[in-house]
Design a protein around this nucleic acid. Structure first.
Lengths: 124, 124
DNA sequence: AAAAGTGGTAACATTAAAGTAACTAATGAG
DNA sequence: CTCATTAGTTACTTTAATGTTACCACTTTT
């Protein structure tokens, strides 16, 4: 969870950011929102995240009660992650973020900074 | 804007995170969603952000076309920020985040990691 | 016998983000 | 004449976040 000071106590936005403010957390959560996913599958769906960071973020999300980790005692191991009930309450946020990302790619004319960034080779 | 690799080209979540993925950006945007705000007022509304970081984040948001900066040529200076039309399309995200932050404070019983974190002195 | 598949972890390195303190210009107030 | 006000910037430092590489255990497949 990201660190904030006392401001958190009374600002809902700061509180929310404390839970999903990481670079990867909303992206991970959005994948889990579609359905249970294994660790290895997440590394494929999110190719730019390292396994170390993925593992670390999943652990934080679990500690924060947003996801549940199911470990099956098999060899080779199998571990599945799913949104907890509370994690599911994040769906409106995740859906809104996903929708925005989809719309912004198409609805903007060239000349606007957003469209220019998307069309150029600049990392987005 | 946060840096992501090629994954961004086809993942809406990654794209969205590129624009609002910073620690402070959603918090700043949520303030602007309520109405135009001066620089100094933002530093009061968001006490934990430094002026340097605030200034820097505002500049990025402006470059990304999400907010508009109005500078009145007065002494002492007056500068107001407002959401651009595109910035306003972020409102569903901002509202969802704000709602979640409000609800999560009240709707969780003790014993749950979220409620424990909120009630303890741990930074949230 | 060696390689592949899985879900990690440990040590280490790097980059990104954030913070601090001091400073600016121009005016009005006291 | 000095202080307060505003919206910053600059230089420097520190902390947080993320990344890289190599490795483990155990079983099945080749």
């Amino acid at each position: 969870m990201r660190k904030f000071e006392t401001h958190a106590a009374y600002c809902p936005m700061v509180r929310t950011m404390g839970y999903i403010g990481g670079k990867w957390k909303p992206i991970i959560l959005a994948r889990l929102a579609v359905g249970n996913v294994r660790f290895g599958r997440l590394t494929i769906q999110i190719p730019d995240i390292s396994r170390k960071i993925l593992s670390q973020q999943l652990k934080e999300l679990e500690e924060d009660g947003l996801i549940i980790r199911h470990s099956y005692n098999e060899k080779p191991p199998r571990v599945e992650y799913e949104l907890s009930d509370i994690g599911k309450t994040l769906m409106p946020i995740l859906n809104a973020m996903n929708d925005w990302g989809e719309q912004i790619a198409g609805n903007i004319g060239s000349g606007h900074p957003i469209s220019d960034k998307l069309s150029g080779k600049q990392v987005v």
